[in-house]
Simulated assay, not measured.
Amino acid sequence: MKKYDKGMDLAAEKEDLENLKAAKADRQFPDEVDTPLDQLARIRFQKYRGLESFRTSPWDPKENLPSDYARIFQFENFDRTKKRILKEQEEKDGALPGWYLTVHVKDVSQLLWSSFKQSKMSVVLIGLFPHEHKMSVLNTVLKRTPYYSLPIKSKERLVFQCGFRRFAVNPVFSSHTNGQKHKFERFFQPDSTVVASFYAPIQFPPSPVLCYKEVDNKLVLVATGNLLSCNPDRMVIKRVVLSGYPLKIHKKVGCY
Rank of each mutant, 00 (worst) to 15 (best):
K117I: 02
K47A: 08
R27V: 10
D107M: 02
Y199M: 10
F54L: 06
P201V: 09
E185H: 14
T224P: 00
V172D: 01
G179D: 12
K3G: 00
S149A: 13
N77S: 15
T193Q: 10
F184V: 10
K106R: 09
R239H: 14
Y245S: 04
M135Q: 04
S197K: 02
R165N: 12
P97K: 05
W113L: 01
V195W: 02
E185F: 05
L20D: 02
F167L: 12
D31R: 14
F129G: 10
G7A: 01
L247W: 06
K24G: 10
K92G: 11
W59L: 15
F160S: 07
S114K: 11
H131S: 12
V241A: 06
Y148P: 04
A11T: 06
Q39M: 14
A41Q: 12
S115D: 10
I85P: 08
A12K: 07
D191T: 01
I152T: 08
A41K: 09
E132H: 06
E15D: 13
V159R: 14
S57Q: 03
P130G: 03
P232W: 07
Q28H: 09
Q74P: 03
P130A: 14
F188S: 00
K218G: 01
G225R: 11
V194A: 06
N170Q: 05
F188H: 07
A223N: 14
Y212Q: 04
W99S: 14
R55D: 13
E90T: 14
G179Q: 07
L219S: 11
L150M: 13
M121E: 13
T56D: 06
K21P: 00
G254K: 12
C211Q: 01
Y147S: 10
P58R: 15
Y245G: 00
L242F: 12
L227M: 10
V222H: 05
D5F: 14
V236E: 13
K82E: 07
H131K: 14
N170M: 07
V240S: 12
Y148H: 01
N19E: 02
V215R: 03
K248G: 09
K218Y: 03
F160Q: 12
V253T: 09
N19S: 01
S229W: 07
L247H: 11
V215H: 02
R80H: 13
Q110G: 13
R165F: 13
K21E: 12
A41L: 13
R27F: 14
T177P: 00
A23E: 05
R55Q: 10
M1L: 02
